[in-house]
């Protein structure tokens, strides 16, 4: 565990100590604020629960996009600068390294989520939503973000450079986001499978409404685990090149 936290700590501070980390954070918060203003605060009167629902929806989407930018450097940058040797020649296992990287990405994403808290706080003060509803919404955002960070960690582990990692990560993430559209034009039995994979349409909706859906939790956790496992295998495979 110490090794995992060591890797996570360094990578998290690398985000905090660079312009890149703050640029991602600023952009994500700006977009989140704009969306909240456009969809939540203007136009016709809405129920506060609906405003929270929309906040969770677009914040999850922004978290996914941020995950691509956050994770692209995790392994690919270390490979480009040669510092991957420090990790590869250390007594840490590949699983520890992957988990450390994943945790750093999640910590940064959680930091972003924390900074968005003023928006649900406004809904709480001016509307009728409970703290539990807000907490469940954030759980949904972090679960979606976790899947995004998992996909990005894997993409970075298999890529030689950050750009390639970002492209792979984006393609896979977009696939999961647009599954509901693909399902419409797909015949059975694949229709059900593709439909099941849809991030927002299928699995996030209950969290937007303030309900913890165990099926959704299982889906996002499984997806994260699967991609981290793939990242782990790709790191091991590199030693056998």
């Amino acid at each position: 565990m110490k090794g995992i936290l060591l890797v996570a700590r360094r990578d998290f501070w690398a985000y905090i100590n660079t312009v890149w980390g703050w640029a991602i954070l600023a952009l994500a918060l700006l977009l989140d604020g704009v969306f909240f203003n456009v969809f939540g605060l203007t136009g016709t009167a809405q129920y506060s629960a609906d405003v929270l629902d929309q906040f969770v929806f677009f914040t999850s989407g922004i978290a996914l996009a941020a995950a691509v930018l956050i994770t692209m450097r995790l392994f690919a940058e270390e490979r480009q600068t040669g510092t991957i040797v420090l990790l590869d020649s250390s007594p840490l296992s590949e699983a520890q390294i992957v988990l450390g990287k994943y945790l750093s990405g999640m910590a940064f994403l959680a930091f972003f989520a924390l900074l968005t808290a003023y928006m649900p706080a406004m809904i709480f003060v001016n509307g009728k939503v409970s703290v539990e509803q807000i907490a469940v919404g954030y759980l949904g955002i972090l679960l979606v973000g976790s899947a995004g960070v998992g996909i990005g960690t894997w993409a970075s582990a298999i890529s030689r450079n950050q750009l390639l990692a970002a492209v792979i990560s984006t393609v896979v993430t977009v696939f999961f986001v647009t599954c509901w559209m693909l399902a419409r034009v797909t015949d059975a039995p694949f229709k059900a499978i593709i439909s099941y994979l849809a991030f927002f349409d299928k699995h996030l909706q209950p969290f937007q409404e303030g309900r913890i859906d165990t099926q959704g939790v299982f889906f996002f956790v499984s997806l994260t685990f699967a991609f981290l496992l793939l990242a782990n295998r790709s790191l091991i495979a590199r030693r056998w090149e």
């Binding site: 110490k2 040669g82 510092t83 040797v85 420090l86 250390s90 007594p91």
Partner: peptide
């Protein structure tokens, strides 16, 4: 390695200490 692997944003002392912990 021929090109020393370094986290260049760290100070020398921080870097060497970090590597020590990385090595267990």
């Amino acid at each position: 390695p021929e090109d020393p692997p370094l986290y260049r944003e760290m100070t020398v002392r921080e870097f060497v200490a970090y590597c020590g912990e990385l090595k267990g």
